[in-house]
């Protein structure tokens, strides 16, 4: 009796210990670090963070990236998922190829795009060979911020659209095909079917994909760092700089807290906006 009552707790104990050690404990420590300065409780670290010359730029850049990358990724992934649904043969193969970037680490992905976009990279060699340019262009310099931004957006889309796709494809498979057939029989065109049937029924999956991708997009770092270094400051990059270069754990922790608060806020917004009424669930 006692054994079987204790067993569930024993079984979840390792994961609880793991989470306490590697998640709760660092979280508490980070909060502590962020709100102490020179041995006492203070908002000094936050004041220093906000007062820094790169703060506004990194905040703006991060939000800009999220605002451009996420809608593009969702749109692309939706399109790709719909196309996969329509395929009769070779669907698994195409899905498999599309999801290859998922297996590439974000730093490696950044380096792949660096090799394409840097001044002696594949893009310039190709353009030069085609006679479009006379000499190598430096796409990734601070003198060319638009090209740098576009490069980062491209790399992020290439790297992380597949995770959205995988979630949406799984969501599609939960929708019985009779819904689409019924809509078709009752006169809905392809576009209407997508708007009135596909999107609403895919809402739970869209919500998961959006939350996951947005939280990760606010944490964007390695790709940006590989392509632009500090020419394109982002929030996590600033946290890294404060800790590594400035040796200031407090301000780095303040950045971490800020990123967490933004991610939580974004998640709450998605949960509210994309709520499926329990009675309207399939």
């Amino acid at each position: 009796m006692t054994n079987s009552r204790l067993l569930p707790y024993l079984l979840i104990a390792p994961s609880v210990v793991f989470l306490i050690l590697l998640f709760i404990f660092p979280l508490v420590q980070t909060i502590g670090l962020a709100f102490t300065d020179q041995g006492g409780a203070s908002l000094g670290n936050f004041r220093k963070m906000v007062g820094d010359i790169n703060f506004g730029v990194s905040l703006r850049n991060t939000f800009l990236l999220v605002a451009v990358v996420i809608p593009l990724q969702i749109g692309l992934a939706l399109g790709m998922a719909v196309m996969l649904q329509k395929m009769e043969k070779g669907r698994d193969l195409v899905l498999w190829i599309w999801t290859i970037p998922l297996g590439v680490s974000d730093l490696a992905a950044g380096l792949v795009w660096l090799s394409i976009l840097q001044d002696r990279g594949y893009l310039n060699s190709t353009l030069f060979a085609l006679g479009v340019i006379d000499s190598p262009t430096n796409w990734l310099s601070y003198e060319n911020p638009t090209a740098l931004f576009v490069g980062i957006v491209l790399a992020e889309i290439w790297r992380a659209t597949a995770i959205v796709l995988v979630i949406l494809v799984a969501g599609f498979q939960l929708i019985p095909k009779e819904y689409f057939e019924a809509a078709e029989v009752f006169g809905a065109t392809g576009w209407t079917r997508f708007r009135k049937i596909t999107l609403p029924l895919l809402k739970p999956s869209l919500q998961s994909a959006l939350i996951l991708r947005t939280v990760l997009a606010f944490e964007v770092f390695a790709v940006v760092y590989a392509l632009g270094g500090r020419n394109f400051p982002v929030l996590v990059g600033e946290a890294y700089t404060w800790m590594r270069d400035n040796q200031n754990d407090g301000v780095a922790a303040a950045y971490a807290i800020l990123i967490m608060v933004i991610s939580l806020a974004a998640t709450l917004v998605y949960i509210r906006l994309l709520r499926t009424k329990p009675e309207a669930q399939a």
Partner: peptide, 27 residues
């Protein structure tokens, strides 16, 4: 299908879960 002037009842009903009964019938 939509140009054939017919209606259909499916084995698993295919009643849209995200619409009220009124909206389903009105579809």
């Amino acid at each position: 299908p939509k140009e054939r002037g017919l209606a259909m009842v499916f084995q698993n009903y295919a009643v849209f879960p995200h619409m009220t009964v009124y909206e389903n019938v009105a579809f």
